[in-house]
Design a protein around this nucleic acid. Structure first.
Length: 565
RNA sequence: CGGGCCGUGGCGCAGCCUGGCUAGCGCGCUUGCUUGGGGUGCAAGAGGUCCCGAGUUCAAAUCUCGGCGGCCCGACCA
């Protein structure tokens, strides 16, 4: 293609609204333009890159026996009411009414529609297993769209769904997807990691996320440098670090002491001269409409996900100050477990085995010393704390790190959640009616592009992996006015095409500097510069990643690019 | 849902506090010449409801109130 004929609106300056590198470069390189918050138009270059990504995804999905479909994005309310997600999705779902006043929504994912198809058509175990997928636009009314294409309200997703007769079948389907996803992210050139994940509102048992490490991300992942254990922070488990000082020995009784004005863990630590690890942190939460007292080691944080799961109410809330006053007779800064009878007490397992700790006295401005779990009060023990950097890996004893990541793929074993609630039944070999087991698997197409840019760029622009770059090579005549250069450039460009390369000829009447800058910006892995050395029969082959230049003969230039890709 | 910032030709900004000519600057765009290896130089041009509405005033980009839109932090998020 001829650059002079294309619409590639590059920007010399970075638009003020773009914060993260991928967003800035997508705008500057003329890939995207914003239409509204979290809604973007994909221009020519973006569309080319996204199509290349989709091609890779299709090839790998087809390779595991996936059958591509295309489902409606516009869904009737009933479909979502059947699974119960019409209510669960809340404000995150775009909703609208048709002319007759019927409720509709824009699909966020397609478990319901896929299950609707399946229950209408699948009759026999002979028809299973099935792997169905689509590449389609999804809609989510994010409370806060941000970071360019990283968090948007409309995006393209590859989503697949599997139907199997039994757990073993699901395990196999899950494993096929796991392997296919590895190949997809591999081929797209991403450095990724696979982490154990929390299955959230999707329901289901096992789940893995495919994450790309990036400061632009919003998901935190705990990783062990020694054994490779990695898990989403929502779910990660680890052995807590050893307390800063050991506990006082002996079977001591709780003893009240004044702590005037000291409310926070840090203030009490400073006042008593004892580290935060010697304290019990008391949180009052309201789950399922009922109060719960949660105890953690002073320096630990509550994992909202873990608590939500234990309390069986992901919608729980912190208690209001008035409620705390009513239930405890003290303010939040002076709460503790001793003497609490009117609500269940949940303690984090890091408190097991500890003795004689500091806790609030349930009396303003007083704390207790010598409080011991199991002796001075009883509690249910759970893993409730959020893993932190520096914790000890539960698998190997190594040190855990916590890194920021972007989620590019997620696979779930759904189990029977949808097939059961929506009435998908088939007959097994014995002629008995059984419920197939399902899995669902997603990939964010734009996120692959965005992560690639986050991962691979420099001050001059994108350095895209060849497999997803909109072009393999750009041919740049240094001086347009020079007929010999233009002619040679044209010939090289044509040889590239003949070799099956995605080539672009920068035939614009621009200064060489402008052409070089633009080529660097939009990210093709190679550039062939036809310049003064043409007189000696040579052109320059420049590798975008390293900016390394090598002289190659005119006649062999195209082949050399082909060989290097 | 809490907190902060912003809205002035396509892009980046100044002007606003302290109201007053035809609203500026850089980049980009058009035309001509020039130049031709990292955003060339010169010249001449085109392009603006100063986000919208109401109010104050002789006079509003500027002050007041209301609204809309965008960005960022937190909460939230398959």
């Amino acid at each position: 293609m001829l650059w002079s004929k294309l619409f590639i609106p590059t920007l010399r300056e970075t638009p003020a609204e773009a914060e993260v590198a991928s967003h800035q470069l997508l705008l500057r390189a003329g890939y995207i333009r914003q239409l509204s918050a979290g809604i973007y138009s994909y221009l020519f270059l973006a569309q080319r890159a996204l199509l290349k990504i989709q091609k890779i995804v299709r090839e790998e999905m087809d390779a595991i026996g996936g059958q591509e479909m295309y489902l409606p994005a516009l869904n009737p309310a009933e479909t979502w009411q059947e699974s119960g997600r019409w209510d669960i999705m809340g404000d995150n779902m775009f909703r609208l009414k048709d002319r007759f006043g019927r409720d509709l929504c824009l699909g966020m994912t397609h478990e319901e529609v896929m299950t609707t198809i399946a229950r209408g058509e699948l009759r026999s175990y002979k028809q299973l297993p099935q792997i169905w997928y689509q590449i389609q636009t999804k809609f989510r009314d994010e409370p806060r769209p941000k970071s360019g294409l990283l968090r948007v309200r409309q995006f393209i997703m590859k989503d697949s769904y599997t139907f199997d007769m039994d757990q073993a079948g699901l395990d196999l389907a899950y494993d096929k997807h796991y392997q296919a996803y590895c190949r997809i992210f591999e081929r797209c050139g991403l450095q990724y990691m696979i982490v154990e994940a929390h299955s959230g509102a999707m329901g289901g048992s096992q789940s893995h996320e495919f994450m790309v490490k990036s400061d632009a991300g919003e998901d935190f992942v705990a990783v062990c440098g020694s054994c490779g254990y990695s898990a989403n922070l929502e779910k990660a488990a680890a052995t807590p670090s050893v307390p800063a000082i050991s506990d006082p020995e002996g079977d001591l009784s709780p003893e009240e002491f004044p702590t005037p004005g000291r409310k926070t863990i840090a203030e009490v630590a400073a006042f008593t001269g004892l580290p935060e690890t010697s304290q019990m942190k008391s949180l009052v939460l309201v789950a399922d409409g009922k109060p719960v007292l949660v105890l953690l080691r002073g320096d630990h944080q509550l994992s909202e996900t873990k608590f939500g799961a234990v309390a069986n109410d992901p919608e729980y809330r912190p208690a209001h100050p008035e409620e705390i006053r009513e239930w405890f007779g003290a303010e939040a800064g002076s709460l503790g477990p001793v003497g609490v009878k009117n609500m269940p007490i949940l303690a984090d397992q890091a408190l097991v085995g500890r003795r004689n700790m500091i806790a609030g006295a349930n009396k303003d401005d007083y704390h207790l010393r010598n409080v011991t779990l199991g002796e001075d009060f009883q509690a249910e023990i759970h893993d409730l704390r959020q893993v932190a950097a520096g914790d000890v890996c539960a698998c190997c004893g190594g040190v855990l790190d916590v890194v920021k990541t972007v989620e590019v793929g997620h696979i779930f074993k759904l189990g029977y959640k949808y097939s059961d609630s929506m009435g998908l039944r088939v007959l097994n070999a014995e002629g008995k009616e059984v419920t197939p087991i399902m899995g669902s698997y997603g990939i964010g197409i734009e996120r692959i592009l965005t992560c690639a840019i986050e991962l691979y760029h420099d001050k001059d622009g994108m350095i895209l992996p060849a497999s997803i770059a909109p072009f393999d090579v750009v041919v740049t005549p240094a001086n347009n006015a020079d007929q010999a250069q233009m002619g040679a450039a044209r010939k090289i460009y044509e040889s590239c095409l003949a070799l099956g390369l995605d080539a672009i000829l920068d035939d614009r009447d621009e200064r060489p500097g402008v052409k070089f800058k633009d080529a660097d910006l939009i990210g093709p892995p190679y550039r062939i510069v036809v310049g003064k050395k043409l007189a000696t029969g040579m052109v320059e082959l420049v590798e975008r990643k390293t900016k390394k230049t090598s002289d190659v003969p005119v006649a062999g230039a195209a082949a050399e690019v082909k060989a290097r890709l």
